Measured scan of single mutants.
Amino acid sequence: MATGGRRGAAAAPLLVAVAALLLGAAGHLYPGEVCPGMDIRNNLTRLHELENCSVIEGHLQILLMFKTRPEDFRDLSFPKLIMITDYLLLFRVYGLESLKDLFPNLTVIRGSRLFFNYALVIFEMVHLKELGLYNLMNITRGSVRIEKNNELCYLATIDWSRILDSVEDNYIVLNKDDNEECGDICPGTAKGKTNCPATVINGQFVERCWTHSHCQKVCPTICKSHGCTAEGLCCHSECLGNCSQPDDPTKCVACRNFYLDGRCVETCPPPYYHFQDWRCVNFSFCQDLHHKCKNSRRQGCHQYVIHNNKCIPECPSGYTMNSSNLLCTPCLGPCPKVCHLLEGEKTIDSVTSAQELRGCTVINGSLIINIRGGNNLAAELEANLGLIEEISGYLKIRRSYALVSLSFFRKLRLIRGETLEIGNYSFYALDNQNLRQLWDWSKHNLTITQGKLFFHYNPKLCLSEIHKMEEVSGTKGRQERNDIALKTNGDQASCENELLKFSYIRTSFDKI
């Protein structure tokens, strides 16, 4: 039985969820670079991206490699990797027998973001014989899940209580170790020597080791999670996991709180800001991140802002960003909400898709409305799209047979046209069989910064309504002859009103 693990408890099935942008060198404390989270699957090609990484700022997932063999891993080693800020997950990587050479110096898994409450997941690794993470000293947050690894031993010899604050939620089941077939031998045991430290858990006094050649490092209890030197002297209180010299914040392997210019500090002093819960960055760093993602459509890219001495992905609820200094300031009234469309555009074809934009005031991208039916549609669209004030790209209304009016965009005031449909149009209306009105132009103002209007096959939309939009939106004169079809717009509506004058002759039985 794995020490510190839980057996036999019912657990939810383990679901495996399925960018080499360097964020800056980590400095003297770390020998390499800070790398983003990685999802490495199918083959070993991307694994080489770990070569210079000291910190993975995010998670590391290595999974679904069915053609790899043990010899493929023999020359692979990433000794610079010290810390993973989120979680480490391995799933069905064939041929991998140990992690001792792959990650010989991995010391800390912070667990800032977890995989279903777990910071370390080893699942269905069919050839893994031992973990071998002999320098792993601290899992700051989260638990361990090690399950269905039929060859995995050296679990009962690990004292997880020396690595985690609590072992109650560890789930370590259905491994070879369960069948008591392992016969784990710690260093020196074969020669009758006791080389590794022994600890007591559940009444068992057991030597602690990761492999037959690597003991588990056990520091004096007084050192807590700070770690200790090879001689057993406690590291500085700002260290986490390990250090090369005692009581020196510049000799830590990793930091308990924050890293700044080669030393570990309790908090980031001005003019620095907390970033990702582990390091200090200056304003320029946060500003660069903001600008890199301002026009990016890459998933996970955030326009970072500053709030409460932190550089964070977005302002919290009730705050909006001051564009001059990136500071989050309290909103006066309802907060603006910028919604970034991942692929640059979004099609609204149902109430469900409209709900995804609920509360958005600025759309960074283009909207395509293609709704053919739905219950209580006008009210639903207004509830979900009615706060949109600005669209950076274009607005396209296409084959939306259920629409009679666009009044559900009740606050839309600006279409920038930074991206144009077919390279020309910022407003595009095609084949809307029941569209009769755009907006009530006596109450609604709309500016279209650039781009043209396109109207074709809107049989109940009168040309007068379209011409009014040209005047109000500032697009009059931009359109070419064929942009607004004269014969297919309003051709099934009563669009022309003329005053009919009647004269009559009164007659009676005795007068003409």
Rank of each mutant, 00 (worst) to 15 (best):
residue 200 V to S: 13
residue 328 C to R: 02
residue 183 G to Q: 05
residue 245 Q to E: 14
residue 312 I to P: 07
residue 302 H to Y: 09
residue 325 N to P: 04
residue 217 K to N: 15
residue 44 L to K: 07
residue 283 F to Y: 11
residue 297 R to T: 06
residue 135 N to Q: 10
residue 221 T to R: 08
residue 273 Y to L: 07
residue 102 L to P: 01
residue 315 C to Q: 04
residue 323 S to I: 06
residue 180 E to Q: 14
residue 336 P to I: 14
residue 295 N to A: 04
residue 38 M to V: 06
residue 312 I to L: 12
residue 248 D to N: 05
residue 81 L to T: 05
residue 139 I to K: 01
residue 106 L to V: 02
residue 261 D to T: 15
residue 335 C to Y: 04
residue 256 R to K: 09
residue 333 G to P: 03
residue 89 L to F: 08
residue 52 N to S: 08
residue 176 K to L: 03
residue 222 I to V: 10
residue 329 T to A: 07
residue 145 R to V: 13
residue 324 S to T: 07
residue 290 H to P: 04
residue 141 R to M: 07
residue 132 G to F: 01
residue 120 L to R: 01
residue 155 L to A: 07
residue 204 Q to M: 09
residue 82 I to K: 05
residue 122 I to T: 03
residue 58 G to M: 00
residue 44 L to G: 04
residue 134 Y to H: 01
residue 285 F to V: 03
residue 77 S to I: 09
residue 76 L to Q: 09
residue 274 H to V: 12
residue 275 F to A: 03
residue 288 D to W: 05
residue 87 Y to G: 01
residue 257 N to E: 05
residue 265 V to T: 09
residue 66 F to T: 05
residue 306 I to M: 03
residue 157 T to G: 07
residue 275 F to I: 02
residue 265 V to A: 10
residue 264 C to T: 00
residue 237 S to I: 11
residue 157 T to W: 03
residue 243 C to S: 00
residue 233 L to K: 09
residue 204 Q to C: 02
residue 111 G to C: 02
residue 274 H to T: 14
residue 180 E to F: 06
residue 190 A to G: 06
residue 45 T to Q: 07
residue 276 Q to N: 11
residue 147 E to G: 09
residue 308 N to D: 07
residue 39 D to R: 13
residue 54 S to R: 14
residue 200 V to R: 11
residue 44 L to S: 08
residue 186 C to L: 05
residue 84 I to M: 01
residue 45 T to M: 08
residue 85 T to K: 04
residue 117 N to M: 12
residue 213 S to C: 14
residue 32 G to H: 04
residue 43 N to E: 06
residue 94 Y to G: 05
residue 301 C to Y: 09
residue 44 L to N: 04
residue 155 L to Y: 12
residue 145 R to S: 11
residue 137 M to P: 01
residue 282 N to D: 01
residue 264 C to A: 00
residue 220 P to H: 04
residue 162 R to G: 05
residue 183 G to L: 07
residue 281 V to L: 02
residue 140 T to L: 05
residue 113 R to I: 13
residue 336 P to W: 10
residue 124 E to T: 02
residue 44 L to P: 09
residue 322 N to F: 13
residue 317 S to T: 12
residue 134 Y to S: 11
residue 243 C to I: 01
residue 221 T to P: 03
residue 200 V to C: 13
residue 191 K to C: 02
residue 262 G to H: 02
residue 173 V to P: 10
residue 62 I to Y: 00
residue 46 R to E: 08
residue 86 D to P: 00
residue 297 R to I: 07
residue 311 C to R: 05
residue 245 Q to G: 11
residue 191 K to Y: 10
residue 189 T to I: 13
residue 275 F to Y: 07
residue 225 S to W: 15
residue 248 D to R: 02
residue 180 E to H: 00
residue 107 T to D: 02
residue 121 V to H: 07
residue 155 L to K: 08
residue 131 L to T: 11
residue 307 H to R: 03
residue 174 L to S: 13
residue 320 T to D: 09
residue 293 C to V: 04
residue 106 L to R: 00
residue 111 G to T: 00
residue 137 M to Y: 12
residue 236 H to E: 06
residue 68 T to F: 07
residue 125 M to K: 00
residue 228 C to F: 03
residue 315 C to V: 11
residue 299 Q to V: 07
residue 264 C to D: 00
residue 298 R to L: 10
residue 121 V to G: 02
residue 254 A to V: 08
residue 111 G to F: 00
residue 274 H to A: 10
residue 288 D to M: 14
residue 42 N to G: 04
residue 324 S to R: 12
residue 167 V to M: 01
residue 105 N to K: 05
residue 142 G to E: 01
residue 87 Y to E: 00
residue 213 S to G: 12
residue 237 S to Y: 11
residue 272 Y to K: 04
residue 110 R to P: 01
residue 307 H to Q: 06
residue 132 G to Y: 01
residue 173 V to H: 15
residue 127 H to F: 04
residue 209 C to G: 04
residue 226 H to R: 13
residue 137 M to D: 02
residue 79 P to H: 06
residue 139 I to P: 01
residue 312 I to R: 13
residue 313 P to Y: 03
residue 99 L to T: 06
residue 74 R to D: 06
residue 248 D to F: 02
residue 179 N to P: 07
residue 305 V to S: 11
residue 129 K to R: 11
residue 300 G to A: 10
residue 181 E to R: 05
residue 199 T to D: 14
residue 302 H to A: 11
residue 67 K to W: 12
residue 280 C to W: 00
residue 252 C to L: 00
residue 184 D to F: 14
residue 240 L to F: 04
residue 115 F to N: 02
residue 216 Q to A: 15
residue 170 N to P: 05
residue 164 L to T: 09
residue 110 R to Q: 12
residue 257 N to S: 08
residue 328 C to I: 02
residue 119 A to H: 00
residue 56 I to A: 00
residue 215 C to A: 09
residue 290 H to I: 05
residue 310 K to I: 08
residue 270 P to V: 04
residue 310 K to T: 06
residue 250 T to N: 09
residue 296 S to I: 05
residue 60 L to S: 00
residue 150 N to E: 06
residue 81 L to D: 00
residue 178 D to K: 08
residue 207 E to M: 14
residue 272 Y to V: 02
residue 247 D to V: 08
residue 288 D to K: 11
residue 203 G to S: 09
residue 153 C to W: 01
residue 144 V to M: 09
residue 305 V to D: 02
residue 271 P to T: 12
residue 284 S to G: 12
residue 66 F to V: 13
residue 247 D to A: 08
residue 36 P to V: 05
residue 297 R to Y: 02
residue 65 M to K: 02
residue 29 L to W: 11
residue 71 E to H: 15
residue 228 C to P: 02
residue 312 I to S: 08
residue 323 S to N: 02
